[in-house]
């Protein structure tokens, strides 16, 4: 899970007065190494540029005498990289950063930033996605429009809600193909997306409803026959069909809550959507 509203650790690569420039290959290796570890890097050649923002570390080839690169009020560490290879500089940065929590691109508990992004030029605020999502990713903004409220609740690699949007307004920037990846929407995409909505209708109007019915059927058979194997294979068949039709990763379907919980969440989301739609159609009270 990601921490909300935290700053990305920012490292300033300082190459201004009072320092020697990095060698070209070292500068590139340092930049790439820090970015691939999740940092924000600013390359600055003036002390003003270095002070701009919330630097946590300033790195430069100072030959032992670091200039006053940032304002005294800023809690920063200054690292002299004179004579150090990029790997050794990165090691020093990691030590200086201490135990500040941060998401890491290749860390053991990495959260892959996967969540829906709304094209507000296309979105009509119909709230279908809000009703569809079981994980509270969507919410309603104070102006009654759709808002991606809890991006970190989204199930990684699942683009299912983009399939229910009739306007092709939902993007997943890390998806592998257009238009879901954010590439321009063509007329044929709009038609194709409409077809996908129909697929969901074919599955019973709502894939979760379909899943719920199947799960309940399987549960009833399970209790009657006490045949766990059959119930499991029934559930698997159903999930595979759903996964193929709506391109939902199996892990996501496997992790769905109980049918009762699905029902509860669907009702809560539908209520939220209905309230937003009602507010949208109510003319604003004129202020005096």
């Amino acid at each position: 899970m990601i921490a909300p509203a935290t700053h990305l650790p920012r490292v300033v690569l300082y190459e201004g007065p009072g320092s020697q420039p990095f060698k070209g290959a070292e500068r590139l290796a340092l930049l790439a190494g820090l970015l691939d570890r999740g940092y924000w890097v600013t390359r600055a050649d003036t002390t003003a540029a270095a002070s701009d923002g919330n630097a946590v570390l300033v790195v430069g080839c100072f030959a032992g005498a670091a200039p006053a690169v940032v304002a005294d009020s800023q809690p920063v560490s200054v690292i002299d990289a004179t004579g150090l290879a990029s790997d050794a500089t990165i090691d020093r940065i990691e030590v200086a950063r201490a135990d500040e929590p941060m998401n890491r691109p290749n860390g053991p508990d990495t959260w892959k930033p996967w969540f829906p992004v709304i094209d507000t030029d296309r979105c009509t605020n119909c709230m279908q996605c809000l009703t569809f999502c079981l994980f509270d990713v969507y919410g309603v903004a104070s102006d009654h429009t759709l808002r991606v409220e809890n991006p970190a609740n989204c199930k990684v690699n699942c683009p299912a809600c983009s399939r229910v949007c009739p306007e092709v307004a939902i993007m997943f920037p890390k998806y592998h193909a257009g238009p879901i990846d954010g590439s321009p929407v063509r007329q044929q995409d709009v038609a194709a997306e409409k077809m996908k909505v129909d697929i969901s209708a074919l599955l019973g109007g709502d894939i979760y409803e379909r899943l719920r019915q199947r799960s309940e059927g399987a549960k009833a058979r399970f209790s009657k026959e006490r045949d766990a194997k059959q119930a499991l294979s029934e559930r698997r068949r159903c999930l595979t069909k759903l996964a193929d039709a709506a391109q939902i990763p199996r892990e996501v379907l496997d992790a769905l809550p109980t049918p009762e919980e699905i029902e509860r969440r669907t009702a809560a989301a539908a209520e939220k959507a209905a309230a937003a739609l009602a507010a949208q159609s109510t003319p604003a009270t004129p202020t005096t």
Partner: peptide, 11 residues
């Protein structure tokens, strides 16, 4: 240079 704009936007 930022590691990942998506990750920053989510936070």
């Amino acid at each position: 240079a930022v590691a990942d704009l998506c990750e920053m936007a989510a936070r």
